[in-house]
């Protein structure tokens, strides 16, 4: 049997439930939006994941040609 008489309490409960649902939905949208923006900006998308990743290592500059002249003196 459905609850026919609504106590004022039920209204307060509903406002809490709906409010929390809206906040959570907005939070999901926010995190998704942040992800899109961060990817577009080319931010670092990988991190340590329990095994070494060569793609995370700093790019090594090619060693400069041995200096001739002043540097060795």
């Amino acid at each position: 049997m459905a609850l026919k008489t609504e106590h004022e309490l039920h209204g307060r409960r509903r406002s809490r439930n709906v409010g929390l649902a809206v906040v959570l939905a907005l939070f999901v949208a926010l995190v998704f939006g942040l992800t899109v923006v961060k990817v577009q900006q080319g931010d670092m998308m990988e991190a340590f994941d329990h095994q070494p990743r060569t793609s995370l290592l700093p790019v090594e500059e090619p060693a400069p040609a041995p200096a001739t002249g002043e540097a060795s003196q």
Binding site: L9, G11, R12, R16, L20
Partner: peptide, 15 residues
């Protein structure tokens, strides 16, 4: 029993 139940509405948490 429920008349003074301290159940908040959403606005109370916002406040």
């Amino acid at each position: 029993a429920y008349d003074n139940a301290p159940e908040a509405e959403f606005g109370d948490y916002v406040a």
